[in-house]
Design a protein around this nucleic acid. Structure first.
Lengths: 336, 336
DNA sequence: CTGTTAGCGCGTTCAA
DNA sequence: TTGAACGCGCTAACAG
């Protein structure tokens, strides 16, 4: 059974392809009567427009690409979902490319997306030099590129980002105001916004930034598990930990429990992201909420804007993260 | 800057499009020398093959669709990742469609995929009558359809599934062998394999299946949260709960803790899926592992087989789930 | 408001 | 082994 084409629809409706096409695209005039007959014909034939042909002709695919590193990360999954929803509202479909954290695969993904003629691309870290170069190429060739948190210097493409530094600072200040003085950080990188916020809060409170209290290279549950242990057997033991994200915070809480420490009694733990259901953990997690939906919406709307108005000089769009105080943080016990 | 076409490549290499095309597809003969010149030209021009044109001509897109209900479900994310990896190994790309649990959106998704000319489709529950009808249509029109756990009667398309009933049975038998007699179930549907396995284990041990101990309509953390409470304030209180999945098991554990019950001291909890890091929870979760990677691989290989050999009468491919005993289950305390 | 027609970029004949 | 030419299904431009 060959698939029905616009010609078949036209024939069946007693009209010409041109009219059918105008109906399909919504451009140009089609009489009420013609519309009705076309609609009927489409239904009867089970016609589905061939988007390969369409995009070949129009050089528009109605597709945007989203390059991410790991769908199994809950935060990533949330953002991906938000992007899909936002794109859908704009009549666009999203092509998800998973790089499994390998920038080389990111380059491949970009080529694949270009081959499919995506109208725009949204990317996330990590990205190495080659990946950034490939992105620049893509943009150069007329495809809008929006980066979600992947920052280049100088700015090469539009950046949608969250002010994680301010969020981190708020969070650590909250810990300080609770009375904590020995506050550890489980993070990935000393140049990250989270670390800078942590340091800033400590410094402005006149507290030292103790190297022994900062663990780096932590970004998933596995590594957090190890790092938390290191922190918790140290002397002096921190009374609070500010973590890279909720996943690592979860690991830290679990590790603390395993070591016989109660949260927040013996140890306050704070996370970052506010993933689904963090409010239902026991204890409910104090964390810094990232505006995932808005992030997705903004990235998409930026791409859409550029599809319509053309590529503009890169700009930065910063959203704010918000501290959500729940019960995993409390004043420290004075056991002395 | 217009994108380079195969013509540009041909011109630059001093050959004709035909030769370039033969090189690109790998069909037909191209001399070593010609290959070298084409490769060079492609490089210099930054040529990327236009897959819209290609699939228009060949009626093959190199794309398979995966229709899922919620990417934010960790199990789904794992399977999606497995599918992407497997497809990649076969030179195929995956187009992910998110229905947010709405079968009506599933129908839309199918239409979109058809429009993009996918070579095959993998789908997951939920699916209502219309969705199944749309799937049948798709298959009818020559697109291989593989269902991942969405069972129709009679069988309408290939089904790749896990013997959840046996897995559930193993799990509940484990609870019984530990000495539990009052075992609850947090599930979604009394026709599910999990429930049947639960019932079978109980019956073969001569234990009654108490309606009050079975909660249905539970499939995410939110609903589990409620249902667990209902179960735990009941009299007699169950000493063990067998849960629909790890997410709900997690919720149940959290709720128990919140109510001052310790796991596994006062309550044993078992899950299903064995999501990433369930082994690191406190206590490490006893659960039934689903073979996500194999699931993805098998679904893809089945699609690929049908793409190559044509659509065959539907068959069922059953994988086994394996009980993983960890520490969230233990013998009941005798408090009488 | 509608019909006609050329061509998007590529893959595949068929001849050379 | 290579080149020339047609057509996949659709849209846009133009003529009516």
């Amino acid at each position: 059974m060959r698939k029905a084409t616009a010609y078949d629809v036209a024939e069946r409706a007693g009209l010409s392809v041109g009219t059918v096409s105008r109906f399909l695209t919504g451009r140009g005039y089609v009489s009420e009567q013609a519309q009705a007959r076309i609609t009927a014909a489409i239904d009867e034939l089970g016609f589905v427009r061939n988007s390969a042909a369409s995009s070949l002709r129009t050089r528009k695919s109605g597709l945007i690409g989203f390059v991410l590193s790991d769908l199994r990360n809950p935060f990533t999954a949330q953002v991906a979902t938000a992007i899909q929803e936002a794109a859908r509202a704009d009549g666009l479909a999203v092509f998800l490319s998973n790089t499994m954290g390998d920038p080389a695969r990111g380059v491949e993904a970009l080529e694949q997306l270009r081959s499919h003629g995506v109208d725009g691309v949204i990317v996330t870290p990590p990205g190495d030099k080659e990946f950034v170069a490939a992105l620049a190429d893509l943009r150069q060739s007329g495809v809008p590129v929006v980066s979600l948190g992947l920052r280049t210097r100088p700015l090469r493409f539009d950046l949608v980002t969250v002010d994680t530094e301010a969020g981190a600072r708020d969070c650590v200040e909250h810990l300080i105001s609770l009375g904590h003085r020995t506050i550890a950080h489980l993070g990935n990188d000393r140049r990250s916004g989270r670390f800078r916020g942590y340091r800033a809060a400590l410094e402005s409170a006149g507290l030292p930034v103790d190297k022994a209290l900062v663990q780096t290279g932590v970004d998933d549950q596995q590594s957090a598990w190890q790092a938390a242990e290191t922190l918790l057997i140290a002397d002096p033991r921190p009374t609070a930990i500010f973590c890279y994200n909720d996943t690592t915070a979860f690991a830290a809480m679990q590790k603390a429990n395993q070591m016989g420490l109660s949260v927040p009694g013996d140890l306050s733990v704070a996370g970052f992201d506010d993933v689904d259901h963090a409010e239902h953990w026991v204890p409910p997690l104090t964390t810094v909420a990232q505006p995932t939906e808005e992030l997705g919406r903004l990235a998409v709307s930026e791409v859409v804007r550029q599809i319509k108005d053309g590529i503009a000089p890169p700009a930065v769009h910063t959203l704010t993260a918000e501290l959500v105080v729940r019960s995993s943080t409390a004043p420290p016990q004075h056991t002395s």
